[in-house]
Design a protein around this nucleic acid. Structure first.
Length: 476
RNA sequence: GCCCCCAUCGUCUAGUGGCCUAGGACACCACCCUUUCAAGGUGGCGGCACGGGUUCGAAUCCCGUUGGGGGUGCCA
C-alpha cells in the first residue's frame, strides 16, 4: 500500500548515453524536495523508445547522479525502475479509457490527418473519428477525447496556467502498432507510482494539460506540478547537446568538483535565502536542501555561465584540505613525474587552481624536465624581463651569491634574503628584480613562487640553468 | 500559423505597492597588499524593454506593444 500523504517525486530521464547538466539540475530540485519534505525520490528510466535504450546507459545515469550527491544508497532513493517494465499498465489504462468513453479509435493515417488539415485550413487533427464508433483494429490509433472547457494547471513556479481545451485536439494515446505514447506512459507511471510532485523542465509545460486530463479521466486528482525554467546558452537557446557543452561527465573530466557544480546549478533560477547578507552564494548542499523551496524558483530561463562555475570551483578548491588537494592534483600529472617532488610543490598551486585539468602540470613542468635537457625559454618573456639596465649585472650578482651558498643553506628564506641583498644595490623592488631569474629557471614569466621553486629545483640545477641562460644577454 | 511561458546591471539573481537614490554574486576596471601569477582587501562601472492605465505612491498590480524562449509527431 502506498501512503498517499507521503511526498514522492521522480526523476525520469531517457537513457541517451549522456547526462545533461539541465537534467542534473532537475534531479537536484527533485532530490531537495524529497529530502526537505521527508519523501522519496524515484528514478525512472524512460526507455520506451527501444531504439535508443541501452542497459549500460542506466548505469551511467546512476553514476552521474551519485557524483552530484544523489546516492542510490540513500534511504530516500528508489529505483531504477524501467518504464518499459510497466507496458502492461499503460495498455491497461488505455483500455479503461476506451471502455469509459474517454478515448476512441481512429483509422486515419498521419498523411490523411494532414490532408484533412490542409483541406480545412485548420492545423492538427479535427476529431474525424470521434463519433464513428470504431473498435480496436489493425492500423488504428487510440485517441483521447478531449472534453470541452478549460484545463487549469496549478504550477508551483508559474502559478495558474490556463489552457483552452479546444487548443489541445484529440491527441494519440496508443500508436497503431499498439505501443503507448509518452504522455500516456508518463502519466500512468506517475499515477501507478503514487507520485505527488512532478518537478521537471519547462519544455514539458505544453503537454501538462494533456496529462492532467489523463489523470482525471483515470480518476485521480492531479499531482503538484512544478515546471522549472530551461537552461540556455549565450544566444538564449535551450542548451542542446548538438551545439553546447552540456555533458555532466565532460565537466567532471575537466576537473570540476561536484560540490561546485551542484552549488552553481542550484543558483540558476534560485538564490539561497541569506546569501545576500552572507555576501556569498557558496553554500553546502545540506544548507541548501534545508531551505530550498520550489515557490522561490525564478520562472525565466537561465544562462549557464561557465565563468561563474569556474569561480565557484576555485572557491571549493581553495577550501579543500591541503592533503586532499595534493592527492587530487597528483591524478593530473604525467606518469613519469617524481611524486614526492610534486607533493612538495603542489600546495603552492592550490590557490592558483580553478580546474583540475591541464593547468596543473603546465604550471610546474619546469621542475620535471629530464636531466641534461634545457628549459625552453620564451623569447618574449626573456626580452621583457631583461630589457632594464640593471638586469644583466643583477643576474651576474645573483649567480655569484648563489654559487657562494652551500647546500645546507639552499633554503627558500636564504635564497630570498640573498636576492634582496643583491638587488638593493640597484634600488629596485623584488617584484621586478626576480623576473630575469624566473624566466631563466622556468622559461616563463609566471609561475609558482620563485624561491620555493629554486629550493625544490636544487642548487646544481638552478646554477646550471642560470649559466645556460646567461649568454642570452649578449645575443640581445 | 496556433498554444504556452518569460522580460531587473554583460551574466545569475534580491525585490510580492512606500524600507529602492534598486541590493548581492560572477565578470570587468582601478587602487592596496605582494616574490611573478594567483589569492585577499577597498572602491568603481553597470539594470527595472517600451507605451498606456490603476494608485496619494509602482521594478512591484492591469492592459497593450516589442523582444526572447518553449511546444506544436503514431519522439521523449
Amino acid at each position: 500500500m502506498t501512503d498517499r500523504s507521503a511526498v514522492r517525486v521522480r526523476f525520469a530521464p531517457s537513457p541517451t548515453g549522456m547526462f545533461h547538466v539541465g537534467g542534473a539540475r532537475s534531479a537536484l530540485h527533485n532530490w531537495a524536495v524529497a529530502h526537505r519534505l521527508g519523501g522519496s525520490f524515484v528514478l525512472r528510466i524512460e526507455d520506451t523508445d527501444e531504439a535508443r535504450s541501452r542497459p549500460e546507459w542506466t548505469a551511467g545515469i546512476i553514476d552521474a547522479l551519485a557524483w552530484i550527491g544523489i546516492s542510490a544508497d540513500d534511504p530516500a532513493f528508489e529505483g531504477p525502475l524501467l518504464q518499459s517494465a510497466a507496458a502492461g499498465a499503460h495498455i491497461g489504462a488505455a483500455e479503461r479509457l476506451y471502455q469509459q468513453g474517454h478515448a476512441y479509435y481512429c483509422d486515419l493515417t498521419p498523411a490523411q490527418v494532414q490532408e484533412r488539415a490542409d483541406a480545412s485550413g485548420t492545423p492538427g487533427y479535427d476529431g474525424y473519428s470521434r463519433d464513428r464508433g470504431l473498435g480496436p483494429g489493425e492500423g488504428r490509433v487510440l485517441r483521447f477525447r478531449v472534453p470541452d472547457g478549460v484545463t487549469v494547471v496549478d504550477d508551483l513556479v508559474r502559478g495558474r496556467v490556463e489552457f483552452d481545451n479546444s487548443s489541445l485536439e484529440d491527441f494519440v494515446l496508443v500508436r497503431s502498432d499498439g505501443s503507448p505514447v509518452f504522455v500516456l506512459a508518463n502519466a500512468v507511471d506517475d499515477i501507478e507510482m503514487g507520485i505527488t510532485h512532478v518537478i521537471r523542465g519547462e519544455e514539458h509545460l505544453p503537454n501538462t494539460p494533456k496529462q492532467q486530463l489523463i489523470w482525471s479521466a483515470l480518476g485521480h486528482a492531479p499531482p503538484v506540478w512544478a515546471h522549472v525554467p530551461v537552461l540556455v546558452n549565450e544566444s538564449r537557446k535551450k542548451l542542446s547537446k548538438r551545439r553546447d557543452k552540456v555533458s555532466l561527465d565532460q565537466y567532471r573530466e575537466e576537473g570540476y568538483l561536484p560540490e561546485a557544480m551542484v552549488n552553481y546549478l542550484m543558483t540558476l533560477g534560485w538564490t539561497p535565502p541569506g546569501a545576500e547578507e552572507a555576501g556569498t552564494e557558496i553554500m553546502s548542499w545540506p544548507d541548501m536542501e534545508a531551505v530550498f523551496d520550489l515557490a522561490d524558483v525564478n520562472s525565466s530561463p537561465a544562462f549557464f555561465d561557465v565563468r561563474k562555475l569556474d569561480a565557484f570551483n576555485g572557491e571549493y578548491i581553495r577550501a579543500m584540505d591541503v592533503d586532499e588537494f595534493v592527492e587530487r592534483a597528483t591524478e593530473e600529472i604525467p606518469d613519469d613525474w617524481d611524486r614526492d617532488r610534486f607533493a612538495r610543490i603542489a600546495p603552492l598551486l592550490q590557490e592558483r587552481t580553478v580546474r583540475f585539468d591541464e593547468e596543473i602540470p603546465g604550471k610546474v613542468d619546469f621542475l620535471f624536465i629530464p636531466d641534461g635537457t634545457d628549459v625552453e625559454i620564451d623569447d618574449a618573456s626573456w626580452a621583457k624581463a631583461t630589457k632594464a639596465e640593471w638586469a644583466e649585472p643583477l643576474f651576474a650578482d645573483v649567480i655569484d651569491a648563489y654559487e657562494a651558498l652551500t647546500d645546507d643553506r639552499w633554503r627558500t628564506d636564504v635564497l630570498k634574503s640573498e636576492y634582496e641583498r643583491v638587488m638593493t644595490t640597484y634600488g629596485i623592488k623584488l617584484g621586478k628584480a626576480q623576473a630575469p631569474v624566473r624566466v631563466a629557471i622556468t622559461g616563463r614569466s609566471v609561475g609558482p613562487p620563485l624561491f620555493e621553486s629554486l629550493e625544490e629545483l636544487g642548487r646544481d640545477e638552478t646554477l646550471r640553468r642560470l649559466a645556460v641562460a646567461r649568454p642570452r644577454f649578449g645575443s640581445g
